[in-house]
Amino acid sequence: MSEYNIQKMISEKKGRRSSAFIEKMVPIILLLITLVSVLTTIGILVTLLSETIVFFTRVSPIEFLTSTEWSAFSSDPQWGIFALIMGTLKITVIAVIFAVPVGLGAAIYLSEYASDRVRRIIKPILEILAGIPTVVYGFFALTFVTPLLRGIWSEVNLFNALSPGLVVGVMIIPMIASLSEDAMSAVPNTMREGALGLGSTRLEMVFKVILPAAISGILSSIVLAVSRAIGETMIVSIAAGSTPNASINILESLQTMTGFIVQVASGDATYGTDTYFSLYAVGMTLFVFTLIMNVVAQWLSRKFREEY
C-alpha cells in the first residue's frame, strides 16, 4: 500500500462537507426558479385582465364586440375590435394560402424525395430564413415586394394587405416545412416499404400513406404557423399601414391588432387615456386568439405522438 489512505482522507473530509445542506436546498431553489415561468403567465393574465377591465368601465364591451369601426385617435373615437380582427385575418389568410402549399411541398420533398446531401444543404437555409428578424422582413415587404406588386398591378396601394401577407407567409414557411418534415420522417419506414412493395409510385405513397399517417403532426404545424402569423407585428406595422377597416379589400391600407398596439406604444397615447387602456383590450383579444391556436396545436401534436 502507498503512504496515504484515500478512504481515510475521504472520511476526514466528510465532517467538513456541507453537502447535505446543499442537497436539500438545490431542489428548492430550482423549483423557485421554475415557478418564474408560471409567474410570467400569471403576470400576463393579470396585466391584460386588470387593464382590460378598466377599459371596459369606460367603453361598452358591446360596442367593442359589435361595432365594425375602430378609430382610437379621432375626436369621436370608435372601438369596434372587428376592424382590427379583420386586418389580422386578411394578413393571416394570405400568409396561410401562400405558405401551406409551399411549406408542405418543401416538407414532402425533403422527407420523401431529397437525398441526404440536399437535405443537409436546404435545412440550414430554412433555419436561416426562420431566424431573420421581422423588422428586416418588414423592410423587404415595403421596399421590394410592394413596389414589385405595384409594378404588376397598378391598383395596389403603397400600404396593403397583399405584400405583408405574402412576406408573413415567407416567414412561416420554415416552421411548416420543418415541423411537417419531422412528422413525416417519424412515419415508420415499414409503411413506406409496404406501399412501394405493392407497386405504388412515390407520389401515391406520399398521398395515400405518409400524409394520412402524419396528418395530426402536419395540422399541428399549420396551426402553430397560423398562431405565429396572427401575432406577427413588425411586418404589418411597417408595410400594412395604419387605417383600421373591416373591408375585405386586400389592396388597400389596413391595421392589425398588433399594428395598433405598436402604433399606440410608439408614443401616440399618454398613460391613463382610453387609448392607453385599449392597448390591453386589444392585447387580450390577441392573446386569446393565439392561446386557442397553441392549445389546439398541442392537442394535435400529442395525438400524433400517441400513434407510434
Partner: peptide, 19 residues
C-alpha cells in the same frame, strides 16, 4: 471519485491516478 469526496491535492491525485 477522489475529487468528489473533497481530495484536491494535486500530488495525491497524481498518485491515485497512477496507482
Amino acid at each position: 471519485g477522489a475529487r468528489v469526496h473533497g481530495v484536491r491535492n494535486k500530488k495525491v491525485l497524481d498518485q491515485v491516478v497512477e496507482k
